[in-house]
Design a protein around this nucleic acid. Structure first.
Lengths: 340, 340
DNA sequence: TTGTACGCGTTATCAA
DNA sequence: TTGATAACGCGTACAA
């Protein structure tokens, strides 16, 4: 049972020392396994027993205050919904950090950017910060460094000169899809941009389509803004059914939108991929479950996670002022099935 | 640009005081808006200017050390994969906490339980901890309280006497599905238990089927352990096609497993729901996208999130020793479509 | 209005 | 082996 030296207050190392009948110094030596501080096995045991008895857990704040650095690694929650990619990423990162005695913390603030965000992160004086590059300016990164954050790793569309960036291009997702469709001979392509939470990523992916269209004037791009809603999808499909120069292919924002469109297209009598080809994104299990099987752009979340962990670890090892870091690129890959 | 009073070290309130030409006390008064400490508008401005100039951000650890309590609320990352439910929950909780000046932190450790886990959480001396009830024992909760954690809110299958619990019954998910199937006249029901990450929740949902079967001896329950894999699904479907007393209904762990089974069943010539009815879980968009449309048990993540936030806020307001809290129940709801 | 001084919990240094 | 002491950054009671 947990003993209560001072009700409502957490036990301190002094409490442990008192309970074990030793000095605070001794407690500290035992708990931190300080080498070369000949502690007898007997006292060691006494101290550990007292720790267990009191349920002692060191105060991380005080420890960090004294040490000048914490063992926290702060991951700023990304703007887009938490999906499988993030899940894998967190899992791997946590494990890798745990091996070094570092603790992964996901910071909840999702609305603040730039200096505002950095100030909140800096309050915790973390060892490292991982954040979307779109939420970090040169100033905010400098601020973090100023606050003793040894490592800053960004994730985003493109590398910035002031911090190592793991490039993860939403934009290329659209590009890869468009390139495939062009190669298949499509000339009129529609791109879906979702409304709501997903619109930010949606714009980026659509911009990728636009990149390809800009390079090839014979392409005709149609932008379709749409919530995830069967009726809206039906309306779009109906319009296309009635039009003689409808798009011959549609890049849906993700696999779910793609499935939604496929259903709507079929509902109005258009065939997939015969009349309209469809490409999704994420390569989810859904792709195999719909008819026809869905062609999809894969983000390879496992690869991404590993790459991310690698960069983070390199940065943690790096002593301030080393050579600039590598910035891996992560190219999405088209997984071809039947729908396009 | 960020000024550097002492390179590599974060600016302190003393630095701010120096830069503003005032005392540390004054800085503190200004930053904490201490009432009744007549600070002239001029000095106020000077201090704030210095804060901006230095990029000062208070050391949360030191502040907590002094105050005896932090403004952190720790959410221990749940064991099962982060999905839409968790996403909504975090979003709502963060907003509600932000209104009180509290910061939501998601703690990465996912493998530790009981005392081990509690020790890690306690190190940060958070104001509140939210965790899966299955990772908390009576002792570990007592330990947290001992360490000044004012509020502990659990989420899990059933209420425990030592902490307020938001009841969220995976088990009832299976129960609700089974009750529906029984009402529809099914007597031989199969339940899928996924392998891997999802097995923990899978066992609970299957136990819900078992509850119903236990109460009705005429029911015949078949347990199917299965990874998410088309070939394995096909094998199961083939076996059923060849058997004269195959299950007439299958409770799939979630919508994706349900869709996988539906496809496999159709592939081997069995009709849905004619030969075999199928029920999924989560009421995802997928339900409307497959043929036939999928009947699913909905968890109503928005309701859940609101309920969760409500309980958390009540607990935060509660002064230690108040009356025991309400423990809302959250009943899953069957959304009927065509597949069962 | 402002400065001085103390203590929160840890750990490192130094002397015993 | 151990015990006293100082310092980390912050907030505040108290005195000026």
């Amino acid at each position: 049972m947990v003993q209560v030296p001072r009700p409502g207050k957490a036990p301190t190392s002094a409490d442990v020392a008192r309970a074990a009948g030793v000095s605070r110094t001794t407690v500290s030596f035992v708990l931190n396994n300080v080498p070369g501080s000949g502690i007898s096995e007997a006292t060691r045991e006494k101290v550990l027993a007292a720790v267990r008895k009191l349920g002692y857990s060191p105060n991380a704040g005080a420890r960090a205050l004294r040490a000048g650095t914490s063992n926290l690694v702060l991951y700023a929650m990304p703007r887009w919904p938490l999906g499988h990619t993030i899940h894998t990423l967190l899992e791997r990162t946590r494990d890798a950090l745990a091996e070094r005695g570092l603790v992964l913390i996901v910071h909840g603030d999702r609305n603040l950017t730039g200096m505002e965000a950095a100030r909140g992160w800096a309050e915790l004086r973390p060892r490292a910060v991982i954040a979307d590059s779109c939420r970090c300016t040169r100033e905010s990164v400098a601020m973090l460094r100023q606050h003793g954050v040894h490592t800053v790793v960004l994730v985003g569309e493109e590398a910035v000169p002031y911090a190592p960036t793991v490039v993860f291009q939403q934009r290329r997702v659209g590009g890869v899809a468009a390139e495939h469709l062009v190669k298949e001979g499509h000339r009129r392509i529609a791109g879906i941009v979702p409304l709501g939470d997903l619109s930010e990523a949606g714009e980026l992916r659509y911009a990728g389509l636009q990149d390809v269209a800009d390079a090839d004037p014979s392409l005709e791009l149609t932008r379709v803004e749409m919530p995830f809603d069967h009726d809206r999808a039906l309306a779009v499909a109906r319009a296309w059914a009635a039009s003689e120069n409808r798009p011959t292919a549609v890049f849906a924002y993700n696999d779910e939108f793609a499935a939604l469109m496929m259903r709507a297209l079929r509902d109005v009598g258009l065939s997939v991929p015969g009349d309209v080809a469809v490409v999704g994104v994420d390569d989810t299990p859904l792709c195999e479950l719909v008819t026809p099987r869905l062609t999809s752009v894969a983000l390879h979340s496992t690869n991404f996670a590993e790459m991310h962990v690698k960069v983070l670890m390199e940065q943690l090892d790096r002593t301030l002022g080393d050579e600039p870091p590598v910035v891996p690129e992560h190219e999405p890959v088209l997984v071809r099935r039947d729908s396009a």
